[in-house]
Design a protein around this nucleic acid. Structure first.
Length: 188
DNA sequence: TTCCTGACGATTG
DNA sequence: ACAATCGCCAGGA
């Protein structure tokens, strides 16, 4: 089965300085058309994860079924593949992704909302084009997530903020990205 | 197939 | 700065 086993790894607390050189994450890909099966290394942060596998080739993907029995759509695979290349320590926006994939921001949001491979597929690195924190795990963050009360109401968003903080990406008291475009990855 | 709903974004008043 | 509106398009019922 040419798929990646996403093994649970304890997340090491990363500092801003370390963020850019996180431990390489290895995955193996098997080419069915060519007998050239080889493994490639992808730079990904070590994060705890579900035990779901992330298939990388068409055959495995066509066979893939979620625990609930449903399949992952072509559009979803495209979105997941794309955000997999967002560097640690950076974020990008729904708008950018939709432009890159000739989709729409709302469709991208939908794919991320249903992301079964989180956090291996780093949907937490996607924020709103206004540079506000955006959504996570099905909830849309109010742009005021940092008041004591706001945090309690949005545990999920707080988690997204925490994960990004570990990767060296911070937000101000109103939930807006600190550092502006310096922190935004645009496909290059 | 048609209709409706969204982790969005850009425009407008 | 903010809220209302509309365009977007992928999925699901």
């Amino acid at each position: 089965m040419p798929a990646l086993r996403v093994t649970p790894i304890t997340a090491p607390a990363q500092s801003k300085a370390q963020a850019s050189k996180s431990k390489p994450y290895s995955r193996t890909t098997t080419s069915t058309t060519k007998s050239k099966s080889k493994s490639e290394t992808v730079s990904q942060p070590a994060l705890p994860d579900s035990t779901l596998t992330f298939p990388t080739d068409l055959i495995a993907r066509s066979r893939f079924k979620l625990p609930n029995g449903k399949a992952v759509t072509g559009h979803q695979w495209k979105v997941y593949d794309y955000i997999l290349s967002i560097p640690v320590g950076k974020v990008t926006t729904y708008g950018h992704i939709s432009t890159a994939l000739s989709s729409s921001p709302r469709a991208v949001g939908g794919a991320l909302r249903d992301n079964p491979f989180a956090p291996y597929i780093p949907c937490h690195r996607v924020i709103a084009s206004s540079l506000f924190i955006g959504g996570f795990q099905g909830e849309w963050g109010k742009e005021d997530v940092t008041t004591e009360k706001g945090r309690e109401e949005s545990q999920k968003l707080a988690k997204k903020l925490r994960v990004l903080e570990e990767e060296g990406v911070n937000f101000d008291s109103k939930g807006k990205l600190i550092g502006g475009l310096e922190k935004v990855w645009n496909g290059e």
